[in-house]
Design a protein around this nucleic acid. Sequence first.
DNA 1: CTGAAAGCGCTTACAG
DNA 2: CTGAAAGCGCTTACAG
Lengths: 348, 348
Amino acid sequence: MSVTIRDVARVSGFSIKTVSNVINGHPQLRPETRQRVEDAIEELGYRPNLSARNLRSGRSGVIGLIIPDLTTAYFAELADAVMRTAAARGLAVLIEPIGSGRENELAALRGQHRHMVDGVIYSSLTLGAGDADLLKSVDTPLVVLGDTSFDGQVDRITMANTAGARAATEHLLAAGRRRVLALAAHEGDIVASAELRLAGYREAIEAAGLAFDPQLVCYADSWHRRGGAASMTKLLEDGVAFDGVFAFNDTLALGAMRVLQESGRRIPQDVAIVGFDDLDETRYSLPALSTVNPRRDDIATAAVETLLRRIEGGPELEAIEIETGFSLEIRESSGGSDQKATSATNAA
Amino acid sequence: MSVTIRDVARVSGFSIKTVSNVINGHPQLRPETRQRVEDAIEELGYRPNLSARNLRSGRSGVIGLIIPDLTTAYFAELADAVMRTAAARGLAVLIEPIGSGRENELAALRGQHRHMVDGVIYSSLTLGAGDADLLKSVDTPLVVLGDTSFDGQVDRITMANTAGARAATEHLLAAGRRRVLALAAHEGDIVASAELRLAGYREAIEAAGLAFDPQLVCYADSWHRRGGAASMTKLLEDGVAFDGVFAFNDTLALGAMRVLQESGRRIPQDVAIVGFDDLDETRYSLPALSTVNPRRDDIATAAVETLLRRIEGGPELEAIEIETGFSLEIRESSGGSDQKATSATNAA
DNA sequence: CTGAAAGCGCTTACAG
DNA sequence: CTGAAAGCGCTTACAG
């Protein structure tokens, strides 16, 4: 039916081995030989059968990306960055959207696609230190994205949660805000990022010589617009006074912003607001939202390269952790014009 | 190294064939036999090697989804719907984001993942009637999404572009608007959807006894917020008078809405606006955007099932076309409350 | 119901 | 540089 390497061998007049050498870019080949094989490949329209290659080599050239869903802008943008990075290295990405919640995250580790992929990039919100053994029991090479505390047992990529949150809060304080809300989500399970961002917020408050006021820390029940809107509605009802908001992610910020505007408050004049994530849409909101840019491209690159290292190095290799940098994007919502204040860190 | 079907056979005491029968749910098996094989599978932690299965069966259980990118909300939501539908049928989805433009779309047809997937769902913006031969030359089973005119040569799923656009425009006219803009994108290449939506707009205008006014048809140079904002800015500069806008998609609408609001116009009091796509975020914009809901779940289901039919039926099968229905979601931007006016069509 | 055997298309020692 | 041959793990006629 379809053209195989055997057909190419027959047409070109060389052995299967030689054809294979040409396909795989083996260096020591007479140019003439290479040319004739390539002509035959072209003529026949030969394409290697990947299943056969994978069966033989034990590699599929596909990596998995496990995320809660694809419709959340944050994960869509992350997935896009991972796919671009992977494509540049000749890898395809199989996305597995698993829904949110701890149960789904655990189930995904035993997921059906496990045997199709050479390794997995796993974006976890709910796994904690206690799950390290579980993760180590997975025989697929694995890189974890996100701030779960695994202390050196699993490869992971983390972002500058604390430093980014501190920079965002400092920016609000530098603009003269004195009562800055921390709009913080927690989703039932422990979300380590939230704690780290809260720590950064607190550092900035205290470094400015202000008192950390628990009344200004407001929990939302989801990381989405709905959660931000609901929390802000409640704050306004409760009559809490504030002149700045650091939201732990952009969608919380956008939800809160809408409620603030409906209540007649002007942004940034009455309330300045900064988010976290640098979603594409923050550039187009009204007003454009200031935010912490976690550099998704850097995260994606670090994840893919760490995974490749693990795939090649095997389980013996020591686990590494890479923390990516950030920058603060100052836009209208915090009174900035469109200039960009950058402050990046990089740690290994 | 890893556990194979041979190990399961050895441990269970049955032949490889019997183990295979159990794995593939072959019906005529003594329950006791099945049980003992399943125990062995469990005990050994056996998982079938998909590469081997695929090599043998010629199927991979993976379908491709070719889209321009994943960060555009429309495609992210489409991809999510396709993945959910596919997962329900035991299929994995390999997304290939190819960038926009005709060149990229053509290149994707020869893409590197072609031999990894059983078939491809291909969301095209730029392919036209002249490309039918090209599409037919692709030996992978293929379902095209979008309104490219292929008249029965390729399986395709189309949406109710004209009917949806007409319903949106009629809704604006019914609310008393008399000068309704058509905010229409065209991206260099021919985008058939835009023509069809324009036709629906025109039908509604003329059915209402109004004259079709070319001055009210405004082209944007992209389907994104930026395009909607730029077009609206130009319209306002030119002093074109209007009291309603039917935008050909939601992001155009959101971009236009921002510019209208900055100019001091109230929505919907001064200008009522309706979009197309029912993106998740339209529920959260300020004001919430009325829009045509193209029922992405229906599109995804039709696409996956048509592809499966093609994969099983082979190239001989006659090509089919399915047009999915729509509903009109009336929200604040067109003066509605939150009720829902539904009008659906379905054709084969 | 079950077993022994061929073969899917490739890569890779092993010989030359 | 090149060829003949084994084998990756599975499914499936073909026999029993």
